[in-house]
Amino acid sequence: MLRIKPDQKQRVTLTVNGKLVSGYAQPRLLLTDFLRHEMGMYGTHVGCEHGVCGACTIIIDDVATRSCLRYAVQCDGLELRTVEGLAEPDGKLNTLQKAFNENGALQCGFCTAGILMSATKFLQDNPKPDRDEIKEMLSGHICRCTGYEQIVRAIFQASGQ
């Protein structure tokens, strides 16, 4: 059994976008804050911090999920994918990101990192979704700029349909 005292800093090592990284976390440190403040990876955004808005969604061990509802100490040894890992190594946007760009699927961009990660995993599970399936997946995100239509179009385009 693992036990970590409230003020104890535990070493947490995890794989983020294929790279092994490590840092220290007290039990109450949210995974979002670990990524942003300990790892300096600001791609993952924090919106509501109670699992409703979807901005912090990342892929943990191949599951798209809220990173504000996880503690860093729970994730020792796990494999994470965040928005920083989407672009090609030379910095070129990947298919999904390009589709967002071409369809005007973002304006302020605050919700975008989370939506890109949800959509990445969603398209992996369901490579040829219909528009209703995309909308249902998107119901787990809040976007205050686009009205969602452009996002639906972008994900549909990225699926090659």
Partner: peptide, 17 residues
């Protein structure tokens, strides 16, 4: 907001729970 400080316990068996 952030949670209060707590001790984190991760049991591996029902007995430990």
């Amino acid at each position: 907001m952030k949670p209060v400080a707590f001790e984190y316990c991760r049991p591996d068996t029902l007995e430990e729970v």
